[in-house]
Design a binder for these strands. Structure first.
Lengths: 110, 110
DNA sequence: ATCTTATATGATCATATACGTATATCATTG
DNA sequence: CAATGATATACGTATATGATCATATAAGAT
């Protein structure tokens, strides 16, 4: 895998994408949307967050094109727009899990 | 892919991992280490950053177990410890690239 | 037009963190 | 035991961003 170095602008974009994913509440929202679209109110209730806060996070996720927005009457429905987040989260979770078991083994005596 | 919801603590860990990756300079360092281990001074020169700043970023990356630290005399060599970053960066870059070309196409007339 | 409901936004405050300067630690050499 | 060289850390400052409260917008109902 011989990749030429990314430009400074490209690195900024990649960093920005990671930053969007670096909030537990946003990860929670993404996870809740894994099994299909939901409206804001549903997400507010499922997360227990305030309406204002959830709305802002949804905005952040939509601006970065991870979510899609669909307006229907009074309600707004959000859904996953970028399927790579599935793999992304899977990768990170797998890596962390591995680390965790490895850490646990450090002090184990046999 | 039926995944049960992650616990709040797990979400914090995942968010933390993403946060570590959310800095352009750290991404730059990771990228420079893609083709093998380097010592701090080399990384300082290659990035043009200050020694203090690079050292701190390397610490952050090592604490999160993305890098491995090897001390040899006066020098300290860092190298990639978690191979999932390759795929992680690949995924994000691919997704962003796709978006970019899609965005470019929005205003294209044929 | 007024009222209600669902969602978005402005203002503010608190917290986190990146950066630079200066200094400390640690290993090597004389 | 200095003195030197490579790396790490303490501290201050500037900036970014998350949470909350209050309010605004927008769409539908009366």
């Amino acid at each position: 895998m011989k990749t030429r170095p990314l430009s400074s602008e490209a690195l900024d974009l990649v960093a920005r994408r990671f930053a969007v994913l670096a909030e537990p509440m946003r990860l929670r929202l993404l996870q809740l949307l894994f099994d299909g679209e939901k409206n804001v109110n549903a997400l507010v209730e499922l997360t227990g967050g305030t309406q204002a806060n959830i709305s802002r996070h949804l905005q952040t996720l939509t601006e970065s094109r991870l979510l899609r927005r669909r307006k229907e009457g009074l309600q707004v429905f959000y859904s996953i727009a970028d399927p790579t987040i599935f793999k992304l989260c899977e990768l990170v979770c797998g890596s962390l899990e591995k680390e965790h078991t490895a850490m646990a083994g450090v002090f184990r005596r046999e």
